[in-house]
Simulated assay, not measured.
Amino acid sequence: MGIFPGFGGWINQNIQQPLKTSKRSKNGKSSSVSEEDRYIQGPWYWDPDISPKEKAESMEIDHVKSMPLSATDPRYYDLDELVRQNRLWNSEKKHPWNGAPAKVKVKTKKGLCHLNIDFTLGSPPQSVSEMFTNPRNLMYFHSMGKYKYNWRTRLDTRATKVLKKDGPRQITEVEKVLRWKILGYNGTIPIHLIIDENHQKVTATYKKVKVKHMKVFEGSWKIQPLYVDQERLCKSRSRISEEQYKKCSGGKGRIGSKVTMEHIFEPSSLLNVPPVSWFIRGIAVKVTKALLQDLREYVITYNKTETVDPLVYAKIKESIQKEKETELKELED
């Protein structure tokens, strides 16, 4: 939750190119990959501090889910600070902070349904952005209820392809599948989107290429830092900068995320008549709320455990090793 020297060359080779899928078999030879595994092609960024040896060792790992990779370009944020924040969230047990469930306001006008969504999460903005866009099908949207025992997520990525990379801006084509189950009915909906992200501002807009049963399917999100310990540690409610927050909290202040989203959809013409349109809108709104709750539950569970993303784990391991080396050096002196 990273880049590495030379990634620009890799990404330039892949821009506007069709997805090519290959997988290393046990005997070291490449073989074709099923549709379910196409997402492993990227987009990916490596930890900029990773050595060639560590990178080579990571490339030998069987699955991309276990590699120290990121879908967000860390040239535009402080990776070390992000790692430090993750450690704070994992270690703070006396003052748990879970954030409130999402507030979803629904308004329908002339066939268009507008969802205005506000929620908070106990994780830094870059980490939340990573959860929104990471194509590894990690358990961010894993229902704690309906799908608990079959290891399936509500939202899976099937394929991704970078169309344009310009500084912090990245335009990616994404194919997903959404699973839903309501009142005894269930099904899947293929979703094909273009996502336009800004990794520095931590914002994005998206628009459909094709979404089943939808004439309009688009929206945006903005993720802002939330200084959850400001009142407790800084004794202040006034707006302050991240640097001021770090100083007044003695470096112990956790940074969460305030997420503002807008989602707009309209059922296709033949389905945009009552009572069918009511049913489709009901499913869309309910599934959206369920996805947001899945994400909230994931973050709460994550903060209660010591389990971290492979890239974050690698950085934490590195920082601990440096601390030990410093201590040893001081003892020798």
Rank of each mutant, 00 (worst) to 15 (best):
D73W: 07
P74F: 05
R75L: 14
R75E: 15
Y77V: 06
Y77R: 01
Y77F: 11
L79P: 10
D80L: 02
D80S: 12
E81N: 05
E81A: 09
E81V: 01
L82S: 06
L82W: 03
R84K: 12
R84D: 12
Q85H: 00
Q85D: 01
Q85M: 03
N86M: 11
L88A: 02
L88W: 07
W89V: 04
S91A: 15
E92K: 07
K93R: 05
K94A: 09
K94G: 12
K94T: 14
H95A: 13
P96N: 08
G99Q: 03
A100S: 11
P101H: 01
P101W: 06
A102T: 11
K103L: 07
V104R: 06
V104E: 09
V106N: 03
K107V: 14
T108A: 12
K110V: 10
G111D: 02
G111A: 01
G111N: 04
C113Y: 04
C113A: 13
H114Q: 14
H114C: 06
H114L: 13
L115A: 03
I117S: 14
T120P: 01
T120A: 03
G122N: 04
G122W: 00
S123C: 13
P124G: 10
P125C: 02
P125F: 07
P125H: 02
S127T: 08
S127L: 00
S127F: 02
S127M: 03
V128R: 00
E130S: 10
E130Q: 09
E130W: 07
M131E: 07
M131F: 05
M131S: 02
T133A: 08
T133Y: 12
T133W: 03
N134F: 03
P135I: 03
R136I: 02
R136L: 13
M139Y: 11
Y140T: 11
Y140C: 05
F141C: 11
H142P: 08
H142N: 15
S143Q: 07
M144A: 13
G145V: 09
K146H: 14
K148F: 09
K148L: 11
Y149Q: 12
R152C: 11
R152P: 04
R152N: 09
R154K: 15
R154S: 11
R154W: 14
D156E: 14
T157M: 07
T157C: 11
R158P: 12
R158L: 14
T160H: 09
K161W: 06
P168I: 03
R169E: 11
Q170T: 14
I171L: 15
I171W: 09
T172C: 11
T172S: 05
T172E: 07
T172K: 08
E173H: 10
E173K: 05
V174I: 13
K176N: 12
V177R: 12
R179S: 12
W180I: 01
W180H: 04
I182H: 08
L183N: 14
G184C: 07
Y185Q: 14
G187I: 13
T188Y: 00
T188F: 13
P190V: 08
P190W: 08
I191V: 15
